Amino acid sequence: MASTAGAAPVTTAPASDDSSRRRGLTGYFLLIPGVVWLALFFVIPFYSLVAASLFDPSGSVVNGYEMTFHFQNYPDALRDYWEPLVRSLGYAALATLICLVLGYVLAYAIAFKAGRWKNLMLVLVIAPFFTSFLIRTLSWKLILADDGIVVNTLQAVHILGAEGRLLATPVAVIAGITYNFLPFMVLPLFASIDKIDHRLIEASSDLYANPFVGFWKVTWPLSLPGVVSGTLLTFIPAAGDYINAQLLGSPNQRMVGNVIQNLFTNANDYPAASALSMILMILIIAMVLFYVRRAGTEELL
């Protein structure tokens, strides 16, 4: 009988290495659809926008545009359209503040007071999304109409004069923005508030803190991630909105989105429209980075 005492041990390391290598490559293959999607619908359009913002402004749609790296398009766009740009940021900031106040109260009530009706309340919050954005805004046009119940009531209590109106005013535009983007504020706030341990709130009262102090020392700090998320989700789309200003406002309430749309579709001034779009994007990114850093919420970084 042959001895096997000196036989070398059998090893399966190469097969194991091949299996690990295949598993590692599988992750990269799974990334391909997402990378292709981002390249087609983000990277390429973004490059096109940046390139158009540097076109020679003397060109036209008929004769074509020449890439001359005309950076002067940026200061020219800022000089010509700074008013609607500032107006857009102001409207968006005010609407975001109103959404924060209303949304926080609503999210707090749903999280702590709704009980078994919590899910139903959340469905009611997102119910407006089942209707077109355009239809919702047109509904506000009917609500705030000159002969509508809101204007008639305000005139009856002498808040508005006999010839007073709400349509074609900043009030109507901000009201429309607030209504349309309020769910974007409520949902992150609810997700953050609902995670707060009730025992921490009870502990604050045990330490002789009144409800107001307990809220500012316990509830508010713990809900800050939701506050930051909600304000960002509300402010960013609100700053670029143009439907509310178009349907509920007048030329005096024109926002930067209306200007960009007009430059692209009517004036066919692609360099100015692209430069203004880039300026808005850069401003929003800078404001968001500053806000998140100042808020100090590490969960968002």
Rank of each mutant, 00 (worst) to 15 (best):
G24A: 10
G24P: 02
G24Y: 08
L25D: 03
L25W: 15
T26K: 10
T26Y: 13
G27R: 06
G27N: 10
G27K: 02
G27L: 09
Y28N: 06
Y28M: 07
Y28A: 13
Y28L: 15
F29R: 10
L31G: 13
L31K: 01
L31C: 10
L31I: 00
I32L: 15
I32H: 07
I32E: 09
I32D: 06
P33A: 08
P33W: 06
P33C: 09
G34E: 07
V35F: 14
V35G: 08
V35N: 09
V36D: 05
V36T: 11
W37F: 15
W37H: 09
L38C: 12
L38D: 03
L38M: 14
A39N: 07
A39K: 02
A39C: 13
A39I: 09
F41V: 04
F41A: 04
F42C: 08
F42E: 04
F42N: 05
V43P: 06
V43N: 06
V43G: 07
V43R: 02
I44M: 05
I44N: 05
P45Q: 01
P45V: 02
F46E: 07
F46Q: 03
Y47N: 04
L49Q: 05
L49N: 02
V50K: 02
V50G: 05
V50C: 04
A51D: 11
A51E: 14
A51R: 15
A52D: 10
A52H: 02
A52I: 03
S53P: 02
L54Q: 02
F55D: 00
D56L: 06
P57C: 00
